[in-house]
Each structure stands twice: as C-alpha cells, then as structure tokens.
Amino acid sequence: MRYSEVRDHLAQFRVGIAGAGGLGSNCAVALARSGIGTIVVSDYDVIEPANLNRQYYFTSQVGMQKSTALKENISRINPDITVIAHTEKLDKNNIAEIFVGCDVVVEAFDRDDMKQMLIETVLSKMPGTPVVIGSGLAGWGNSEAIRYRKADDTIYICGDESTAVDDDMPPMAPRVGMVANMQANTVVEILMKKTRDYFRP
C-alpha cells in the first residue's frame, strides 16, 4: 500500500492519549506524522525543565500546559491534524466523556496507580475500545527487553513489563521514546485493520 493511501485511511480516525509526558508527547507526534485525523490529548500538568530530557517540548514552552504546548508543536509538524487538548485531571468520571468517539486510547501516564485507574475505566466504561498500555521503560540499555504483546482483543502492552522508574532508574529519552513509538506503531496497526462503519462529519 502506498503511503498516500495509508495516510488517507488513518485520517478517518480519532485517537485518545491519556497523559502528555514522555510517552504521550512522543506518541502523539508519531501519530500526527502518520496522519491520524484527530488526536484527543489530556494532561493537567505544566512543562518543567526536568521534563525536557525526554518529552517533546522546548525550553521556550516551560511553564505552559503540556496539552496546549503539544497541540502547538503538532500544528507546526502537520497542520492538517486536529488536536483537541484537555487540561483537566482525568478521573473515573470524565474519561469516557473526554475520549468519546475515540477508536483507540493510549495509556501514557507516569504513575502506576493512574495507569490502573485509566485502564480499568476505559475497559469498563468504553467497552470494545482497545487500550494501548506503556509499562516498563525505566533506565537505559536493555533494548532487547522492550516488546509488544496483545493480551486480548482490547489490551495491548508495550514495554519491558519489568522495570519501574525510581531514583536510580530514571526515565530517559531513548527507552521512553522506544515505548512511545511502539505504542504509536500499535495504534497504526490496529487502525489499518479497521474500516469506518459510519460517517463522522
């Protein structure tokens, strides 16, 4: 299939990204470059200098809301992509509303308890919607441990599933970027198999 056909196909879909940190910002940029039509991104946090070791932001954006800055960066990469940026904190009660109509949801949080909350909420309140999880990306090296697997029809996991971030295992651009791009690759794979069965204006 030619790239122009891939891009036209992907333009029909809407992808939700929960979190605009290391995973979310890099995944969103890869999806925007691939031509995903609409990206809904949600993050309540602002950019701090320490985030620039791995997140897709610039020094001039320190202090900005992450989701707003990500929308700006994507518009500079591909102005044809629609980015809907939310700045409220995601919780059990607003997730289904914020990501309504999304064909896939990417779990891109930092903390493990937030990952659990997001995944449980999507699986229970948005039945049938695939969730692409990032789990295990701390430190450096150990490239061969990073993998992709499909647990069932709605759960896809990217990461090494064994390293957690702590003081001696910081998140760094290379491994975070690998997992983020693996998540984006998984989204593309899911959507390339999918046909739109209704028209969304």
Binding site: G19, A164, P171
Partner: peptide, 30 residues
C-alpha cells in the same frame, strides 16, 4: 474469564477450578 476485575472487587471476586486468569503488571514511568 475475560471479565475485568476492578481493584475494589479483589476481595469479593472468587476464582474457581478451570478459571482463566489474565494478570498484567503496571510499572511506573512515562
């Protein structure tokens, strides 16, 4: 058996002979 068990229901959900249990770990970091 393919049905999500949310964390609030860990104490009350029973596992019986023949059940199919899927479990995955979530690692901090993103």
């Amino acid at each position: 058996n393919g049905i999500l068990v949310p964390k609030e229901e860990y104490d009350t959900t029973l596992i019986q002979d023949g059940d199919n249990v899927l479990m995955l770990y979530l690692m901090s970091g993103g």
